[in-house]
Design a protein around this nucleic acid. Sequence first.
DNA 1: TATGAATGAGCATTCATTCAT
DNA 2: CATGAATGAATGCTCATTCAT
Lengths: 210, 210, 210, 210
Amino acid sequence: MIVKSELTARGRRTRDALVRAGRDAFDEHGYESVRIDDVCARAGVSHGTFYTYFDSKEALFGEVAAAVVGEMFTASVVGPGVPGDPYARIEAANRLYLRAWAANSRLVRMLEQAATAEESLRGLLLELREVFVRRGAEGLRRLQEQGLADPALDPRLTAVMLGGMVEHFAHVWLDLGERADERTAVELLTKLWARAIGLTPASSWQQEGV
Amino acid sequence: MIVKSELTARGRRTRDALVRAGRDAFDEHGYESVRIDDVCARAGVSHGTFYTYFDSKEALFGEVAAAVVGEMFTASVVGPGVPGDPYARIEAANRLYLRAWAANSRLVRMLEQAATAEESLRGLLLELREVFVRRGAEGLRRLQEQGLADPALDPRLTAVMLGGMVEHFAHVWLDLGERADERTAVELLTKLWARAIGLTPASSWQQEGV
Amino acid sequence: MIVKSELTARGRRTRDALVRAGRDAFDEHGYESVRIDDVCARAGVSHGTFYTYFDSKEALFGEVAAAVVGEMFTASVVGPGVPGDPYARIEAANRLYLRAWAANSRLVRMLEQAATAEESLRGLLLELREVFVRRGAEGLRRLQEQGLADPALDPRLTAVMLGGMVEHFAHVWLDLGERADERTAVELLTKLWARAIGLTPASSWQQEGV
Amino acid sequence: MIVKSELTARGRRTRDALVRAGRDAFDEHGYESVRIDDVCARAGVSHGTFYTYFDSKEALFGEVAAAVVGEMFTASVVGPGVPGDPYARIEAANRLYLRAWAANSRLVRMLEQAATAEESLRGLLLELREVFVRRGAEGLRRLQEQGLADPALDPRLTAVMLGGMVEHFAHVWLDLGERADERTAVELLTKLWARAIGLTPASSWQQEGV
DNA sequence: TATGAATGAGCATTCATTCAT
DNA sequence: CATGAATGAATGCTCATTCAT
């Protein structure tokens, strides 16, 4: 097998084609159903060529999964340009969150499947979750410090639960055909999220408690 | 193949052993990894016997899935003995909801996987979701009618989202090792749920709106 | 895989057919060249059936080798009916020795090849050699005790060398086409062997030494 | 492919490196296990370069085998400086014989293996044996003519057998781990050889016969 | 000459399913 | 009803060889 760092331009092109083909194939047919042959055909290379770049189907999937996870990280960052209004920031975050998960729903679920068997993939999966959980927890903590959210909530557990709500909805929405338009969905998710953490326009938590 | 209704006592015992063995095997190793051989060995019957009762591996899984779904329905019904306090009822429902999904998390996810390929399983999966969604929506609608919850919320979509929060947490908690004890989890899920729907002790919604 | 002891009569027949077919195939084409398919075709069973009885090609070869080694042991025992005349006994032994190795020359050489890689086969190979070496050494020691052979010879090393002469000749004769008829070969091998150990009609060694 | 005679200095170096690498690889891992890739890596050239110099793996092996055979011829010639004492000459020859075979035991056995399939290699193998057999036969014939060895022995067949004894011992000694030090081994081989051909200090054969 | 990417025939192995007993 | 031997399509992977650069 040729390692990634030792590639010529031509090799890189072929390798990229295989990763792209693999990603499409996995997304369309599911991990188990994908044949190395399918991937090769899609990438326009012969069967043997696959093994010039990857040791196995698992290795390819690892590569695909890593790419997906990387994209999700990048795509879900709420830019600094978003207004300081906490509610608006939550809404923006939820929109990106929903989109990021929706775009990769099937592959992420596949990653979960595969992670059961493959040690290396488990790490990737946990890293993925951790990044999203931490972001959510950080955001909540900040609001708590500003007196805008219920200070009694455990930030991490709350982030896990509310993040899960968004993530799960992405799946139900796109994979299971639950009917809703994005605007409505994001608005409702945001309303539920904001209310759940007790987001207040003023700093009422400092006086009252739960 | 012998159909279920034409079984002798002995046949029923063998068949039940296969279903039980299949359920355990699927839960432990995942759909694809399970060999008919494994199931037969577990059930203590010979390889050929399997086909006396089932047409295929899929057929067995369908049977297992149906059993699981049935159990989940039964197990998650909030008994009439629970006090009328809405918050307490939500908490009781969430506890049962969480337990029901946690107990069968892997099999349900397997069902989702398999449903991608198998038409018949898709129906089962949708039925499963629908029952839970409908229950949640009914509950919310009742609270709205009583003026105890935000009447502006779409009952179904809200139920999908908040139900998803619980369902997803069951998965994260049990399959992915997120650390939490049941009491804490149920309490937080309930608090978030209640706040999200704007559950009020009094009937404040009638005067205010969102 | 079905273990040997759990076979029905039918299974035993199939298994035996595979071993026989494998033996023929190995003998004709050499280890590496033999395809599982060839063996199956020869045995008149389908490809998959092979794996009902053997885990791999190596496993089959192990079985074949063990059978060959067993036969060689049996076939090379000089019966008790052979006259006590030491020279005649050596000749009889050499004849059987030559025949035993000649009959299985290719398979034994294959075993040597394969033993390089397979730990389990190495044991079999060493056992095979050891039996023949020990027999030769015992015979020599007896003659030495009777004063009929040079007592200065190390029995084991001498047996290794002279046994090797016969074994090697079997190979050269049959595999490499060295021309000779069996009678001539056995007579010459015996003459060389007898002279080499200083076999004397009388008990001259007791008086002389080397 | 570039033929040997048309090489530049650089080409010769690369080619030699491949032959040397191939010899080491064959000796260590056996014919079938050697990958062209291994050889190239060892020689420090890229995969494609191999085919600049050789048509195939077999061609490389042929080259290696020829080199080995050449060395064995050279290394085993008893120099003219060795004293005329026949026993001492036999001992010297056996020492060189043993060393020559021991040094190349694995490669020679590989050649025998390969010769089964490759016509061209068969010639090489037969040539190798023939040289050693002829030398042994010549030596014996000379001794017979001088009345120092049993004139009744067929020189060629005797040489095949006794030569085989030495050759085989080299294999058993080095490849199969039979324990012996060289001095002891050579002395015993020589004693057995000398006695077997009836080597006498005086010219007793002229009067007696066997 | 050297390189290394591409090729594809070839092969071992798995496993759901069938069927004779 | 139960058994377990037989089936064979399906598929991942290897590696000698070719060839464009």
